[in-house]
Amino acid sequence: MQDNLTHLDQLKEIRQIMEKSTKFISLSGISGVWVGFVALAGIAVVLFSFDSYFFTRYSDGGVFSVDKLLNYNDLNRLIRFVLIDALIMLVFAIGGAILLTIRKAKKKGLSVWDKTAKRFLVSLMVPLATGGIFTLILIYHGIFAMAGPATLIFYGLALINAGRFTLNDIRFLGLFEVLLGLLAALFLGYTAIFWAIGFGLLHIIYGLVMYFKYEK
């Protein structure tokens, strides 16, 4: 029995080392919660800054869609506002996630910037940057309605791709993001809601799950 235990421990240790040497495991769960709240705040700012559009359309019984805004100047203003808002949120979200991840790595005595981190980031950034540029091209061509859903779809694909180099759970988050993106593309006019669910709610749920599963 004693022997059995040590052999089992050996196998366990081998598995751990294999995982540790290929996967970026320092990604903080709490950073997911942070990103979620930042996203919700960013979306709320847009909704309240342009509440006349959103809320009058809803009270009319119709749905809000930027394409239906006839006033060109207002549309321009909204697009610019959303872009700047999204950029600021991105900086806050990524900055916070990096800080929290560094903190977690330090606590566990792991180095943050190693081969696994690089692989994770590259596999995340390639689809993500493609999606970002593609979204800007959509906006450039005036296809505003598809810009929102596209961000969700590409973000989800990026997560699924990068999931190979971190704890697998993130792939489920990616799958849901893609699903929401497709739904958002189908049901135009609800982008703000799908964004709030995808970038806000899902991140918070994912972060909490990761925190209680691995860090508690």
Partner: peptide, 17 residues
């Protein structure tokens, strides 16, 4: 030895290190 097991484990899943 544990160290050798560790070394081999790493090299099984990484091309080189």
């Amino acid at each position: 030895s544990r160290v050798r097991l560790g070394i081999m484990s790493v090299l099984m899943v990484n091309d080189s290190i």
